[in-house]
Write a protein that binds this DNA or RNA. Structure first.
Lengths: 135, 135
DNA sequence: AAAATAGTTTACGTTTACGTAAACGTCAAG
DNA sequence: CTTGACGTTTACGTAAACGTAAACTATTTT
């Protein structure tokens, strides 16, 4: 089997396996207008672009975006050649999302710090306990 | 009115306003065992610790944790004096959460980069358009 | 006393993001 | 040719995280 990224077409099973999502989920994303693979007869056939898009969708999800958010972002990307006004709107939304993400990163850092400090406390408690046992 | 963080007790309205969440949500967190304020008669009365806990809850949510996740984390914090085994478990979970958060930060950085690059493209397109108009 | 204000419980409704089951098409292998 | 393996659509179900409405209590203001 060649490199996954080098294939030129994927079945739903390919993608479902590679990204650990169910067929149902992938089809659901299609229902929601997030992806639209070609058809070979009635079977779906996904291009590398579709695959990249799926990766974006899943990353967006991990980052906390709703599918509606993600759809909006994807639509942004498809508006490069729209009228100037549309692009202005897209730019604004884009920047807003960036700001939100930066704030979210701050939240994550705070949470990581809290948890790390607490890990230290726990480790100390465990060490003390081990020493006591050893005596 | 004194500094918000200096008050020694808060009503549900205080917290609801300060953190921009509804009364309903705060009570729901209580239902889920995430917070447990004192009562004055039947009214809830929140201590600074409760307030800090609410802040944690909301930060956890922004970071993408479910309420069940958050409850688990809060319970970790309450297990400092549990048996040694509990503390080992807590430590492990703690570290797993940290790893997950670090991965999530990577996802966020990737997404930010993608969006920033796309912003540049949009800005270029807009500039070109403006120049064309000016002629 | 009446009305407004702030709080409470109970219970059903809503949205999101799928899960799950039914019932069927298709195509290569035995 | 039929039996899997893999795919499809349709449709109902579900868990999470509240929203919303109803109906009540307690206190404060007019």
């Amino acid at each position: 089997m060649p490199d996954k990224a080098k294939k030129t077409a994927y079945s739903i099973a390919d993608l479902s396996q590679e990204f650990c999502v169910t067929h149902r989920a992938i089809r659901f994303y299609e229902d929601q207008g997030l992806i639209s693979p070609e058809r070979s007869g009635q079977a779906r056939i996904y291009s590398p672009r579709d695959r990249a898009r799926l990766a974006m969708i899943l990353r967006g999800k991990r980052v906390g975006f709703s599918l509606a958010d993600i759809r909006e972002m994807i639509n942004l990307y498809d508006q490069e050649d729209g009228p100037a006004k549309q692009r202005h709107v897209a730019l604004k939304k884009c920047m807003e999302r960036i700001e939100a993400l930066k704030q979210q990163r701050i939240d994550i850092d705070i949470t990581i710090n809290e948890l790390e400090e607490y890990c230290l406390i726990l480790e100390d408690l465990i060490d003390i306990n081990d020493i006591q046992k050893a005596q």
